[in-house]
């Protein structure tokens, strides 16, 4: 059960001074955004067509992002736009156009992985907040400072850092706002450092948005991950099979126990993974973390992992396994 200890969690701060972090949920569609807000999300993140790290079917294209922003702002909520691929040379101008559109749409923040695009926003649209994406895999304080200098106001700490003291060191050594993932599927590789999918398969296809025939690297830069690390494999040396099964698959991240720690070190944003997940998943996972965050904020000393949350977590984990089964995995 992903390392969860049921029952009382020792509070790490009882002075009530810690500011409540934002809860950010995934929005793969306008309907998902509505669901997330209804369930208690403060903000949603949404992919911009062709330049986010997920398939097009869960990205927002054309006027859709404007509709989403209008809806969210009407409810007093926020939208961060995920534009976190690294553009290849042929994509640079397209990327600039999309950034201009997002600025015009008054998006609340733009999530970027490419360093030059961060500087581009910093220099051309200084009023648009930049978040250094999970794809930048920040694992040390110097890196956080580097992205701050490139114009980022928020960095996402690598979700592959298993020692929370490493996260604390980053928080203590820099004054940039931190964002962390609290729930969802998690990669075998450090985010942004994975090239498995394009090694296995790439394809040329017609891009209707760009009206051109171009290479779709099914890789870490184009959002066409083939879930290689979720698949069954066989580990062999020259003599024998050493192990087999889904050797690279990591259990889903369930971050309820870490909430007190995140409050203590002053994390600004708690993020839930899953733009490609169904509406029920978005609703349940958002409700779960809304309850947990509010419970801790109201009474840190009484915070505990409730038994009633267990079946919810079980369903969320099963939902992710079902998502993988739709890829004919597992």
């Amino acid at each position: 059960m992903a390392g969860i200890t049921w029952g009382r969690v020792t509070p790490v701060s009882t002075n009530g001074a810690a500011k409540k972090p934002e809860l950010m949920s995934p929005a793969g569609s306008l309907e998902a955004a509505e669901t997330a807000f209804d369930a208690g999300a403060d903000v949603v993140y949404a992919g911009v067509s062709g330049i986010s790290m997920r398939p097009k079917r869960v990205e927002f294209g054309g006027d859709n992002i404007g509709d989403l922003l209008k809806y969210a702002h009407g409810r007093g909520k926020k939208v961060y736009a995920a534009t976190n691929v690294c553009p290849k040379p042929a994509d640079v101008d397209f990327f600039h156009e999309k950034i201009a559109e997002l600025h015009e749409s008054r998006v609340d923040g733009i999530i970027l992985a490419d360093i030059s695009m961060m500087e581009y926003v910093r220099d051309h649209y200084p009023d648009m907040p930049v978040h250094a994406s999970i794809m930048t895999s920040v694992v040390n304080a110097e890196a956080a400072e580097f992205y701050k200098e490139r114009g980022a106001s928020v960095v996402v700490v690598s979700r592959s850092l298993e020692d929370m003291e490493e996260v604390r060191r980053i928080a203590e050594a820099t004054d940039i706002d931190l964002e962390v993932f609290v729930h969802g599927g998690i990669c075998y590789m450090f985010d942004g450092d994975c090239y498995m999918s394009s090694y296995w398969r790439q394809k040329w296809d017609y891009d209707a948005d760009r009206k051109s025939h171009r290479l779709f690297g099914q890789n870490n830069t184009k959002g066409e991950c083939q879930l290689i690390c979720k698949r069954s494999c066989s580990l062999k040396n020259d003599k024998e099979e050493v192990a087999s099964g889904r050797l690279m698959r990591r259990p889903d991240d369930v971050g309820l126990e870490r909430l007190p720690f995140y409050f203590e070190i002053g994390v600004r944003i708690l993020k839930i993974e899953g733009r490609a997940m169904p509406l029920r998943y978005v609703r349940e996972v958002t409700q779960l973390y809304r309850q947990a965050i509010d419970a801790y904020a109201a009474a840190p000393e009484r915070f505990q992992i409730l038994d009633e949350w267990r079946p919810v977590i079980d369903r969320l984990i099963e939902d992710r396994l079902e998502y993988e089964r739709t890829w004919h995995i597992g």
Partner: peptide, 16 residues
């Protein structure tokens, strides 16, 4: 052999 990624843990130690 070129890198296909940096893993969060050592696969060989985990599976042997």
């Amino acid at each position: 052999p070129l890198p296909l990624g940096m893993a969060y843990t050592c696969l060989l130690r985990r599976n042997t």
